[in-house]
Lab assay of single mutants.
Amino acid sequence: MIINNLKLIREKKKISQSELAALLESSRQTINGIEKNKYNPSLQLALKIAYYLNTPLEDIFQWQ
């Protein structure tokens, strides 16, 4: 199971779900699903999230 700190990191950087979704060329619903652990992002999307949040991938997503 993958757990994530996306919501915590996103809020700390003062970025809304909609703003992050626009940067990622994704939907706000996708970001919401990832944050609620209802959806696991593809590797490509996970890497883009890490890039746009300027945060190491392993700080956002962790195996448990």
Rank of each mutant, 00 (worst) to 15 (best):
G33M: 15
R10N: 01
F61C: 03
P56M: 05
L24D: 00
Q17P: 03
I49R: 00
L24S: 10
A50C: 07
Y52R: 04
N54K: 12
L57G: 02
K38S: 10
I2W: 10
K13W: 07
E58F: 11
N54R: 10
K7W: 06
I3Q: 10
I2D: 04
R10A: 03
S26K: 10
L57P: 02
Q29C: 13
P41N: 04
F61V: 02
P56W: 06
P41D: 01
E35G: 01
R28P: 15
E11W: 06
I2Q: 07
L24H: 01
L45F: 14
E19G: 10
K13A: 11
L47G: 06
K38M: 14
I34L: 06
E35L: 05
L57S: 03
T30N: 05
I3G: 06
S18T: 13
I31E: 01
E35F: 03
L8T: 15
E58K: 12
P56N: 09
E35Y: 05
A21H: 03
K7A: 11
N54Y: 06
L8W: 09
R10S: 02
N54V: 07
I49T: 00
T30V: 15
I31A: 01
F61S: 00
N32I: 14
L47I: 13
A22G: 11
A46H: 03
N32H: 11
L47E: 13
T55L: 05
L23F: 12
L20D: 00
D59Y: 09
N32E: 15
N54S: 13
K7C: 11
E58Y: 13
Q17G: 04
F61L: 02
A50I: 04
Q17A: 07
I34R: 00
K14E: 08
A21D: 01
Q62M: 10
E58R: 11
L6D: 02
E35D: 01
I34K: 00
W63V: 04
R28I: 15
L20K: 00
T30C: 15
I60V: 07
E19N: 11
K7S: 07
Q44V: 11
A46R: 05
S18K: 13
L47T: 11
L45S: 01
E35H: 02
L47V: 12
Y39R: 10
L57W: 04
Y51A: 09
K48D: 06
K12R: 13
Q17I: 14
I49K: 00
E19Q: 14
E25R: 14
E35R: 00
K38R: 13
A46L: 04
N4W: 05
S16I: 05
P56S: 07
E19V: 09
K48T: 05
S26R: 10
W63P: 03
S16R: 06
I31L: 07
I60W: 03
A21S: 06
A50G: 03
K48G: 06
R10L: 07
Q62I: 11
M1D: 03
M1R: 06
I9Y: 09
T55Y: 05
Q64K: 13
Q62W: 06
K48F: 04
E19F: 09
A50Q: 03
R28T: 15
E25L: 11
S18R: 13
Y39G: 04
N40I: 15
A50K: 01
P41T: 08
L45W: 02
A21E: 01
L8S: 15
I31Q: 01
Q29H: 13
R28D: 11
I49W: 00
E19M: 11
L43S: 06
N40Y: 12
S26L: 15
Q62K: 11
R28Q: 14
D59A: 10
D59I: 06
L43R: 12
N4A: 03
Q62G: 08
G33D: 15
K12F: 09
I49C: 03
K36P: 02
S27M: 04
L23P: 00
E58S: 13
F61E: 00
A50S: 10
A50N: 04
I9R: 04
Q44M: 09
K13S: 09
L47S: 09
R10F: 07
T55R: 03
L53C: 04
L20W: 03
I15R: 03
L47W: 08
K7Y: 05
K48Q: 11
L45T: 06
Q17D: 03
Y52N: 05
K38Q: 14
Q62A: 09
L8M: 13
I49H: 00
P56K: 09
T30L: 15
L8H: 13
I9V: 11
L8P: 09
E25M: 12
S16M: 05
Q44S: 13
W63T: 03
A21W: 09
A46W: 03
F61P: 00
N54F: 06
I15E: 00
R10T: 03
N40C: 14
Q29W: 11
L8F: 11
S27C: 08
A50T: 03
A22D: 11
P41G: 06
K7M: 09
G33N: 15
E19D: 11
I60A: 01
N5P: 01
S18F: 10
E19A: 13
I3P: 02
Y52A: 14
L53A: 03
N37A: 08
I3F: 09
D59L: 13
T30S: 06
S27Q: 05
Q64D: 14
S26F: 07
Y39S: 07
E11R: 08
E25P: 14
I3K: 13
N5V: 06
Q29S: 13
I9A: 05
W63H: 02
E19L: 10
Q44N: 12
L6F: 01
K14W: 06
N54C: 12
A46F: 04
I3S: 08
M1F: 08
L57M: 09
Q62P: 08
L20F: 05
R28E: 15
I3N: 07
K38Y: 13
A50E: 02
Q17Y: 06
K48V: 05
Y39K: 10
L6I: 03
S27L: 04
G33W: 13
I34M: 03
N5F: 08
I2G: 04
Q62Y: 06
I34W: 03
Y39N: 07
L8V: 15
N40W: 11
S16F: 04
I15A: 02
I34F: 02
Q29F: 09
I31C: 04
K7V: 06
K36R: 12
Q29L: 10
E11M: 11
S27W: 04
S26T: 15
I34N: 02
P56L: 05
E58N: 13
P41A: 03
Q64C: 11
Y51E: 10
D59H: 12
N5W: 07
T55G: 06
I3M: 13
I9E: 04
N37C: 12
L24N: 01
P56V: 05
I9Q: 03
S18E: 14
S18M: 12
I3R: 10
N5R: 08
P56Y: 05
Y39I: 15
K48I: 07
S27H: 08
L45P: 00
L53V: 03
L45K: 00
W63M: 05
L6S: 01
E11N: 08
A22L: 12
I60G: 03
S18C: 12
S16W: 05
W63L: 05
L6C: 09
K7I: 09
L57C: 06
K36Q: 15
I15S: 02
I31V: 11
I9P: 01
W63N: 02
E25D: 14
Q44P: 11
E11G: 05
N37I: 02
K13C: 13
S18L: 10
K7P: 02
L43N: 06
L20S: 06
K48M: 09
N40T: 15
S42M: 03
I49F: 02
S42N: 08
W63E: 02
F61T: 00
Y39E: 10
I9S: 01
A46K: 04
N40H: 12
S26Q: 11
K36C: 14
Q64G: 13
P56D: 08
Q29T: 12
Q17F: 03
R28Y: 12
L8I: 14
R10V: 04
S16D: 04
R28F: 09
E58C: 11
S42R: 05
I60Q: 03
I2R: 09
N32L: 09
K7N: 05
A21Y: 01
E58I: 09
G33H: 13
E58W: 11
D59G: 09
E11P: 04
S18N: 12
S18D: 14
E35M: 04
L47K: 12
L53E: 00
L6V: 04
A50R: 02
S26A: 13
T55I: 05
Q62L: 08
K38N: 12
K48P: 00
L24E: 00
N37H: 09
S27N: 14
Q62H: 06
R28K: 14
A21V: 03
I2E: 04
E58H: 13
P56R: 09
S42G: 09
L6W: 00
I60E: 01
N5Y: 05
Q62T: 09
K14Y: 06
I34E: 01
K13I: 07
K12G: 11
I49D: 00
L23N: 08
T55K: 03
K14R: 11
W63G: 02
N5A: 07
T55H: 07
N5I: 06
K38I: 14
L53I: 02
K38V: 13
L45Y: 06
I15D: 00
